[in-house]
Nucleic acid binder design. Structure first.
Length: 672
DNA sequence: GCCGAGCCTTTTTTT
DNA sequence: AAGGCTCGGC
């Protein structure tokens, strides 16, 4: 038999995982044990064995993981067949399924996806309507309660007695009326479709004879049910995971899915990967000493042949500013003295707002960096506005998005009118758009308003028609829409400084770029396809786009988002009580999960790992005293070197510090 | 209906 | 620190 490409690089366990393609397989793969290499090799092997690539379904948990796997599969599978493998997140899978069959569940074909923001603003409205203006109920809280209720399948109780349940009920019926689905609905409805419609289930099972799930420890019960529906006998299903890296419990991830895999699929073949190819012994030793404090895990110990040259370091500084200075200075030094490329460094933090001070620091030192995650491109106001336009063109009955653009740019349809229209829409049980179009309603408005409404409707109709045309060039259309609607002029007027307008304009340009990219790639799904893509893929923005540093530089990333990645040099700032473990997790009894999160962070490092904590940290503009994380006591100190930076910086300034002072000045001046 | 000033809360993590 | 929201003057 021909040996599969890359097979020679696999160890015996990995090879077994690759070659056992029939029946249920559970791969327990510790951090850095070559998991991705193994599963891509497995797919490649299947294709070589004659399984049509389009029959292979690979599910990942995040878009980032999907993208990365796609790249590696394309590299590995010959003849470009890797492209044909069906690969994506559970959510993306459901979207595809529902685009085809949502009508079977009573949705209209042009249903839209509601992102978290849209969900929240809908909930705000629901809450106001239900409880009156003065009564305040936290929409974000309601949202998370609703989400966990949906994911766990546990009802919130009787809407007549329980406020939350009432909110949820109203929310659900509004969503239904808006012909919209939120992220949880995608899974729920996907499951429903497969469980209740045998023909569709058969179709899917026929389509996907071999299924793989990555990061299986992060699946929640809905996703498990979905998997159960997708995979039928003879259960050619392979899941890969590591219970020690389960960090999405707050999203309903159910660690028992991996601990009790046998319950779902009969007699699985279990393969353990324990040899770590990523990190040095000091790093792994430290990681093992931490994670063994968790109860109820599948015991395993990572080991490595690489003794390494460096101890793990634990550094203490006075405050967060010093901490970021220390990181910046060290990276600068390593880069210039040892020629370590900036791409080798990563800074992993618990919360997104920790990145701000690091960014400042790096900008001052001219250290190129990229921020992964952080604020979404699609959270930007100008992007949200234009996307709202596009969404309404696709589905005019989407009230939330319609309200967003109704008076953006200001066109004389203010709050009073909007309220009237909304009220009437509730009474008549139709969408706001229908109310606005109603001549009777228009007649009741003052003349000025009436004209504004008519112009607005004409604008929408004109572009909706354009968008429906099969030959439409979406990019050009959107550009025209932005001008014709007066949006561009509106932005110009709104901007307090010219720079602000330029930033907005750039945002819109890259949105148009994305539309053009989509157009060239696959315009057959039209506007709907693009909208699906953006709400699902929600690509996070690289903040310094105009910099040459686009895809390179030091990586700033949350620990959550870092899962699956690795870097030669890793910094973990903010190892403090209240931050790691996060205060909220204490209150909610999720400390074990925070420990796993810390474990994930530690095991990202290949050669050098630096933990640090500070005595004072700025939060909401206030200086707060910090204590070291209790996790630090759990770490075996055998390979840890501790240094108190705060004391050292009181010593006279070294030449090096002066140099960085100067480079700081230089940066400040050129920023002016 | 529009706009600015000041107040207030905020994000823990992602689809 | 910063963006969202409310209120009051126009």
């Amino acid at each position: 038999m021909k040996v599969a490409f890359g097979m020679g690089m696999l160890n015996p366990q990995q090879r077994e995982a690759v070659m056992r393609i029939d029946g249920p397989v559970l791969i327990l793969a510790g951090a850095g044990t070559g998991k991705t290499r193994t599963i891509t090799a497995r797919m490649s092997y299947m294709v070589e064995r004659g399984i049509p690539p389009q029959n292979i379904l690979a599910v990942t948990f995040t878009n980032k993981a999907a993208t990365e796997m796609r790249e590696r599969v394309i590299d590995m599978v010959p003849d470009g067949l890797g492209r044909k493998i069906v690969l994506g997140t559970f959510h993306a899978f459901c979207v595809r399924l529902l685009r085809e069959h949502a009508e079977r569940l009573g949705y209209k074909k042009n249903w839209t996806i509601y992102t978290q923001n849209e969900q929240t603003s809908l909930l705000k409205r629901v809450i106001v309507r239900l409880m009156g203006k003065d009564e305040s109920y936290d929409a974000a809280k309601a949202q998370s309660r609703i989400s966990s209720a949906k994911n766990s399948g546990v009802s919130l109780g009787d809407p007549k007695e329980n406020t939350e349940a009432a909110i949820m009920e109203a929310y659900q019926s509004e969503m239904r009326a808006l012909n919209a689905m939120d992220f949880d609905d995608l899974l729920i409805l996907g499951v429903q479709l497969l469980e209740e419609h045998e023909d569709i289930r058969d179709l899917i099972r026929y389509r996907h004879t071999h299924v793989m799930v990555d990061e299986f420890q992060d699946t929640n019960s809905l996703q498990m049910r979905l998997l159960n529906a997708i995979v039928g006998p003879p259960y050619n299903v392979c899941v890969v995971g590591d219970d020690d890296q389960s960090i999405y419990g707050w999203r309903g991830a159910d660690i028992t899915n991996i601990l009790e895999f046998e319950r779902f699929f009969p007699d699985p073949h279990v393969i353990k990967l324990e040899e770590n190819y990523r990190s040095t012994t000091p790093i792994l030793h430290t990681a093992n000493s931490l994670i063994k404090n968790n109860a109820g895990r599948r015991p395993k110990t990572l080991w490595s042949k690489n003794p390494g040259n460096d101890f793990v370091r634990l550094l203490i500084t006075n405050d967060d500013k010093e901490e970021s200075e220390m990181i910046g200075r060290e990276i600068e030094k390593a880069h210039f003295q040892d020629k370590t490329p900036f791409e080798d460094f990563a800074v992993l933090f618990r919360t997104n707002d920790q990145s701000r001070i690091l960014e400042q620091q790096f900008r001052q030192r001219r250290i190129p960096y990229r921020v992964i995650g952080a604020r979404s491109f699609f959270d930007r106001r100008e992007i949200k506005d234009i996307c709202a336009y596009l969404t309404v063109l696709h589905n005019p009955h989407d009230d939330i998005n319609l309200l967003r653009i109704l008076n953006t740019p200001t066109r004389g349809i203010g709050n009073t009118t909007a309220e009237l229209a909304r009220e009437e829409s509730i009474q008549r049980g139709c969408s706001i758009f229908v109310v606005l179009c109603n001549p009777d309603f228009q007649r009741r408005m003052p003349e000025k308003t009436r004209n504004s409404i008519r112009n607005f409707i004409d604008l929408l109709n004109k572009y909706a028609e354009a968008a429906r045309s099969p030959h439409v060039h979406l990019g050009k259309m959107t550009e025209q829409l932005m001008v014709e609607s007066g949006y561009i002029d509106f932005l110009k007027k709104q901007a307090k400084e010219p720079d602000e307008f330029i930033a907005w304009e750039n945002g819109l340009k890259s949105l148009v770029d994305q539309l053009n990219g989509y157009h060239e790639r696959s315009s057959k799904e039209g506007l709907a396809g693009f909208l699906d893509e953006i709400s699902l893929n929600d690509e996070r923005e690289d903040r310094d786009k105009d910099d040459i540093t686009k895809k390179s530089g030091v990586c700033l990333i949350t620990m959550h988002a870092s899962k699956g990645l690795e870097f030669p040099v890793v910094y973990l700032p903010g190892v403090e009580n209240g931050l790691l473990p996060h205060k909220r997790s204490w209150d909610e009894g999720r400390v074990d999960e925070e420990r796993r999160l810390f474990y994930v962070g530690i095991t990202r490092a290949r050669q050098k790992l630096t933990l640090s904590y500070v005595r004072w940290r700025l939060k909401y503009g206030e200086r707060i005293a910090q204590l070291p994380s209790p996790f630090l006591k759990e770490l075996d100190r055998k390979y840890i070197e501790e240094r108190d930076y705060a004391k050292e910086s009181k010593a006279p300034k070294t030449a090096e510090q002066n140099k960085s002072f100067i480079s700081g000045l230089r940066a400040m001046m050129s920023e002016e």
